[in-house]
Amino acid sequence: MARTRIALVGIGKIALDQHVPALNASPDWELAATISRSGKVDGIPSYTDFATFLTERPDIPAVSLCMPPVPRYAYAEAALNAGRHVMLEKPPGATLAEVHALQALAKSRGLTLYATWHSRMAHAVAPAKAWLADKTVQKAHITWREDVRKWHPGQDWVFQPGGMGVFDPGINALSILTEILPQPVHLTKALLEFPENRQTPIAAQLTFSGNVSADFDWRQEGPQTWDITVITDKGELALRMGGNVLEIDGKPFAGENTIMGEHPALYARMATLVAQGHSDVDLAPMVHVADALTLGERRITGAFDF
């Protein structure tokens, strides 16, 4: 069965590390073009101008946007207006309103819009959700600490307006939290740390209803920490390695210690959505970030440079 052609927009570290390998291995998709100001994929036709791509390649019915959130809306809007299905890397946009607008546009055009959350595809997230389904959550905590110098070397856009700062990785944790908890929670308090020379936070401490809390920090050195613990009336759950390893009461329960299955699962989901004529746009993780930036107490810290 022939694979469907797809174009990848934005050829940076995440695209090369995750999206390209996932597409190369996909039984559903053929990477048929790339669009980037500088990046390329060997053997794949490349474009530097998106409008030119849309005009010259009507044979490619879908695009995957892997670029910073601020410019993403214009590309998604152009793609939908050109009749292409659109897959959005997380976060789906710079604002909630623009994603709502894209959702309405996709619906009016009869096209698929998929706002992806790759961490929800981690190996242990589905088993964690199933285990929690019939339990009462008494307490939950997220510890999400990583080194921005390692994951976004020299990428100043993450500290510019719309870049989200520490919420760029933190929203991954929130995407898992909103997926696995049996009941929704809402933010009640936040403390955000802004370097004196930056426009977005480098650390955040969040408090939610339901005795749920989170600690995000982008200054971690050495081993990185991506953990979620949930204490229930029937035991304790721990998700580690960004949702890929599940422990119950301190013992291994499910998962694999790798993140390489997340993006293949996203593209499989995109193929299903297109085949069914559906969209998938869940903004719950982004709502929590917006609430934190609205409600959060701002604390200025020392300058931060890569």
Score class of each variant (00 low, 15 high):
Ser108Asp: 15
Arg109Asp: 06
Arg109Cys: 03
Gly110Phe: 12
Leu111Asp: 10
Leu113Val: 09
Tyr114Thr: 05
Ala115Cys: 02
Thr116Asp: 13
His118Gly: 14
Met121Gly: 03
Met121Ala: 13
Ala124Trp: 01
Ala124Arg: 00
Val125Leu: 06
Val125Trp: 02
Ala126His: 03
Pro127Lys: 00
Ala128Arg: 00
Ala128Ile: 01
Ala128Met: 01
Lys129Glu: 02
Ala130His: 06
Leu132Ile: 07
Leu132Thr: 10
Ala133Asp: 00
Ala133Arg: 06
Ala133Phe: 01
Asp134Ala: 15
Lys135Met: 10
Thr136Ala: 11
Val137Ile: 13
Val137Lys: 09
Gln138Leu: 14
Lys139Ser: 15
Lys139Val: 05
Ile142His: 08
Trp144His: 12
Trp144Leu: 07
Trp144Val: 07
Trp144Asp: 08
Arg145Trp: 06
Glu146Trp: 09
Val148Cys: 04
Arg149Ser: 15
Arg149Leu: 09
His152Ser: 13
Pro153His: 06
Pro153Leu: 01
Gln155Gly: 01
Gln155Cys: 05
Asp156Asn: 04
Asp156Trp: 06
Trp157Tyr: 14
Trp157Met: 05
Val158Trp: 08
Val158His: 08
Val158Ser: 04
Pro161Ile: 10
Pro161Tyr: 11
Met164His: 15
Met164Thr: 11
Gly165Ile: 09
Val166Met: 10
Phe167His: 12
Pro169Asn: 10
Gly170Pro: 12
Asn172Val: 01
Ile176Met: 10
Ile176Gly: 02
Leu177Asn: 06
Leu177His: 03
Leu177Ala: 07
Thr178Ser: 15
Ile180Asp: 00
Leu181Lys: 12
Gln183Ile: 00
Pro184Tyr: 07
Pro184Met: 09
Val185Arg: 08
His186Trp: 01
Leu187Asn: 07
Lys189Val: 03
Leu191Pro: 00
Glu193Arg: 11
Glu196Ala: 14
Arg198Ile: 04
Thr200Leu: 07
Ile202Asn: 09
Ile202Gln: 07
Ala203Asn: 06
Ala203Pro: 06
Ala204Leu: 04
Gln205Pro: 01
Gln205Gly: 07
Phe208Glu: 13
Ser209Arg: 09
Asn211Met: 02
Val212Ile: 13
Val212Cys: 12
Val212Asp: 09
Val212Leu: 08
Val212Arg: 04
Ser213Tyr: 05
Ser213Asp: 14
Ser213Glu: 12
Ala214Trp: 02
Ala214Pro: 07
Asp217Trp: 09
Trp218Asp: 14
Arg219Glu: 15
Arg219Gln: 14
Glu221Asp: 14
Glu221Pro: 04
Gly222Leu: 00
Gly222Ile: 09
Gly222Met: 10
Gly222Glu: 11
Pro223Ile: 00
Pro223Lys: 00
Pro223Asp: 03
Gln224Val: 08
Thr225Asp: 03
Trp226Asp: 10
Trp226Tyr: 15
Asp227Thr: 12
Ile228Pro: 03
Ile228Arg: 01
Thr229Ser: 11
Val230Ala: 12
Lys234Gln: 15
Lys234Arg: 13
Glu236Val: 14
Glu236Gln: 15
Leu239Glu: 01
Arg240Glu: 12
Arg240Phe: 00
Met241Asn: 10
Met241Ala: 13
Met241Leu: 03
Gly242Pro: 05
Gly242Gln: 07
Gly242Trp: 07
Gly243Ser: 03
Asn244Gly: 07
Asn244Pro: 03
Val245Arg: 11
Val245Gln: 07
Val245Gly: 04
Glu247Ala: 00
Glu247Trp: 01
